[in-house]
Nucleic acid binder design. Sequence first.
DNA 1: TTGCATTAGATGCGCCTGCATGTATTGTTG
DNA 2: CAACAATACATGCAGGCGCATCTAATGCAA
Lengths: 130, 130
Amino acid sequence: MSERSVVHAWRDVLAKHAVTSCALERELSEHHQLGMSEFEVLERMVEGGQDKYRVQEVADAVHLSQSACSRLIARLEKAGLVCRGMCEADRRGVFVLITDEGRARHAAALATHRAVLESVFAPRPQPAGI
Amino acid sequence: MSERSVVHAWRDVLAKHAVTSCALERELSEHHQLGMSEFEVLERMVEGGQDKYRVQEVADAVHLSQSACSRLIARLEKAGLVCRGMCEADRRGVFVLITDEGRARHAAALATHRAVLESVFAPRPQPAGI
DNA sequence: TTGCATTAGATGCGCCTGCATGTATTGTTG
DNA sequence: CAACAATACATGCAGGCGCATCTAATGCAA
């Protein structure tokens, strides 16, 4: 892969990331009181199929630092979308569980999220002659 | 493009962005006292071929808000890498010029930047049998 | 020209992030 | 077991970002 291709690939990532994350942040927070990262965490927990997750596990899934994820989970807990529980096996650890309200909020926001993604990654061609 | 493809494409962008921006931030700031966005601005000014740029023009090029870009340019100016000048034609406006020191800093950081990009977008295959 | 909408850029503010560090617990080594 | 390294998560802190707003200058209409 040539240097020009590499640079081009990176700039494409930058552009798509900027447009998409900005739109997601706006749409999700306006219509569902969720930030992009909040949605991302809920989504991974819904899709993961497990009932409980470790904090670091969540952080890895959404590409956040452990500290950012710890605070993010605290925000979600405060909003009633997840809850934290002590891990009996390793009492340093914490389990994070998604609540029914968390599942509901994720389900409600899903269409908004997907609509933004499609507008960036699969834009519908404009019909000619408007 | 199916919904699954769209979601996959977005997650790929998220992953690449996280890994690359994190690495760039670390490497550039450690070796060249530059943040990723600072480098990006210098690069666009070097490549653009113009001698002066409007603030909004720079903001668009690097996908930053006007306010973020205004502060970023202030940091670069403080570091002596660009300078700001009044725009005679429209006295609301400001011209941003890259200095020789700015060009030098960009040139010095270029190899580091490209090395990070290659490590993510064109990783060299590990020779077998280590 | 006067008055008002618009535009360029700077700045106050609050939020989120990563890094460094703190606290508690677990593992390991002598 | 005692001492110490390692691990899991929380938290203090500083920095960057976007949004809203402010100021100054411009453009346009009456």
